[in-house]
Nucleic acid binder design. Structure first.
Ligand SMILES: [Zn+2]
Ligand SMILES: [Zn+2]
Ligand SMILES: [Zn+2]
Ligand SMILES: [Zn+2]
Lengths: 169, 169
DNA sequence: ATTAGCGATGTTATAATGTTTCACTAATTT
DNA sequence: AAATTAGTGAAACATTATAACATCGCTAAT
């Protein structure tokens, strides 16, 4: 299992990506799902960025690969990756990010820096519990939680946004 | 102040809408903000539906009014209404709903029925606290919370989805 | 080997959502 | 009244996502 990434701190990103891909291969094998070249490449691109990528960012990257891809190519790959818990869609950004808890059943939530655009995925039983409790009070049956917290990451609060390529600049 | 709406139960909807509009007028007056006819009409349309409406749903409704509106007309009105806490955008639906706590400073969250598309806005200090605590543990400064819970409302769980017009049907 | 089935992909077109820009008008301030 | 500001109209454009249908490649039964 990939360790929780630390997008706010330096790390060996190539190894980080490779670990995520290795995990994905295993997860798909276990599920008898086919992590085809296109799907794997999309996942790799998402992990390489470590910041949420839009579908058309991915499309452009595939085009650079020489892959003559159209929007459905990307959206299909993203659907597959989401269904197998390998990526999450960030609704407030219309973008996709690698799941850092792939394989676990989990309800993630996201801390999204509005300045450097880094995203940190966390899981909090307390938060899940608070959601479930509030829902139960209304007799509402929870199926899917979308919890996206926008603000400033520690680095950006201190005026030193993390260096590195930002894919939407 | 408008009482908490009960979208899952019958109510005098015309009075509900009128109350929301009266509240909005007062809030805007207090803030020296201009609730112009277009803005007020958009707010009225949103409240009349009592289910989230997309920007282009609103645009179509304005067109039916005889208002020769273009997309920016709607988005500008929505921006104004959001800035004054009169409507919320539901990111997971690309749609807008009337704020049931207008005037309060609050961090709302939403229970969204995937079947009847009713939305219930709630505020939960426990939930807010869990979010703030999880963020603080990462030294993340929260600015805006997007918490949208999808599932089934009580009526739809029991197989009797609330009657009434559904605007996206 | 043949062929029907099926998942995945290619391809084109289109739908749905959201923004930029500039010219113009109405309201407010001085 | 003049200057300033806020709001609107209108056209074009940009971005995000899906529909529809053809095709390819593998597999499994015939
Ligand atoms: Zn995850
Ligand atoms: Zn940051
Ligand atoms: Zn609200
Ligand atoms: Zn329902």
């Amino acid at each position: 299992m990939v360790s929780t990434p630390l997008p706010y701190r330096p790390h060996n990103h190539a190894a980080c990506v490779e670990q995520a891909l290795a995990d994905a291969r295993r997860i798909c094998t276990d599920a008898s799902a086919r992590l085809t070249p296109t799907r794997e490449r999309v996942l790799e691109l998402i992990w390489q960025s470590h910041k949420p990528l839009g579908a058309y960012d991915l499309l452009a990257a595939l085009t650079l690969d020489g892959h003559n891809a159209a929007p459905p190519t990307v959206y299909r790959a993203l659907d597959f990756l989401q269904q197998h818990g390998l990526v999450h869609r960030i609704a407030s950004l219309n973008a996709f990010t690698g799941c850092t808890h792939a394989g676990d059943h989990h309800t993630g939530f996201f801390l999204i820096c509005r300045q450097c655009h880094n995203v940190l995925e966390l899981a909090s039983p307390d938060l899940d519990g608070a959601v479930e409790q509030a829902a139960q009070a209304q007799k509402f049956a929870v199926e899917k939680s979308t919890i996206e917290i926008a603000g400033l990451c520690p680095a950006c609060q201190s005026g030193t946004p993390p260096e590195g390529t930002h894919c939407h600049e």
